[in-house]
Design a protein around this nucleic acid. Structure first.
Lengths: 152, 152
DNA sequence: TTTCGTGCAAAGCATTTGCAAGTAG
DNA sequence: CTACTTGCAAATGCTTTGCACGAAA
């Protein structure tokens, strides 16, 4: 918990217990969880935590650039504590968001068409390797690679 | 209206008046409007049109691949009738979404990390040329390049 | 005391759904 | 007749806000 504490402090955020747990959860769960998933998971350990605190904290972390907010699914925000620039892969079958380490050459541009670039965002959409492998199972009416982490 | 009619028919969508007007609106307004913007604009001409019909139509057009749904702002879907692959630029000042014709070399990949790619999405975020030019005005407390089309 | 964080409840907003009435073939 | 479309109203789901209580400095 030391590292988490230090990260918060050095970014001007008072390291409360809830905040440390939220940031720690993101560091440990690289599945790009939603605010609600974080809330429900932490609720198991911290019975008094509220959605408000989770949303407040994520907003604050996002404002300081400590987490990225992904809006690629359209109906919910997903959070990513990896701050180094990278891209994502969204599986249209199971909903999983996977980090992709390929780097787009365009990412080095400072401007395009006269517009000043500050960030570049990109993601691929398709079928992840696990879903491709479980096509046979899926045809049997089973849910995609059950028991494994996906959208969570 | 002939072209719009034909486009709908050839995609297996019954060309009702509302649907033609919605698709036509998207062809004529390349500002990536929201569903609600489309609704409010068409309401001026078609006093009986409903949001439901706009949403239904956009969903149907999206299903057939006739329009793209952009979720880059996070709190609302924006629609684009340009079906050729291209990227976008989101201005963090005025909210405008601008088509970008640069093509990422990664767009040719069929797979990445074992995952099958079906679509590639990318956008730049920063300050558009008009907002950069109107920084002085903005400091005077004025809204970004007023009178021009932006988020609409 | 003053400021900040927490969490409950309510509100807000984009979108979806249920359903009754209308339209086309 | 039969299938599809429209649009109102209500519901849904994610997120934000108002507010009172509590903790920290």
């Amino acid at each position: 918990m030391k590292q988490t504490n230090a990260k918060l402090s050095s970014n001007g955020i008072k390291p409360t217990y809830q905040r440390m747990r939220i940031l720690k959860f993101l560091h440990q769960n690289r599945t790009h969880p939603t605010a609600d998933t974080i809330y429900r998971e932490l609720l198991k350990d911290i019975p008094t935590i509220s959605r408000t605190t989770v949303y407040n904290t994520l907003k604050k972390l996002n404002d300081r650039g400590m987490v990225a907010m992904l809006t690629i699914t359209g109906n919910e925000a997903r959070f990513d504590s990896e701050t180094a620039p990278h891209h994502h892969f969204l599986c249209e079958k199971c909903g999983a968001i996977i980090d992709i380490d390929v780097r787009c050459p365009l990412a080095d541009k400072m401007s395009v068409g006269g517009h000043t670039i500050k960030e570049i965002h990109g993601y691929f959409k398709g079928v992840c390797s696990r879903c491709v492998a479980s096509v046979v199972d899926a045809k049997k009416g089973e849910s995609p690679h059950e028991g494994e982490n996906t959208t969570q």
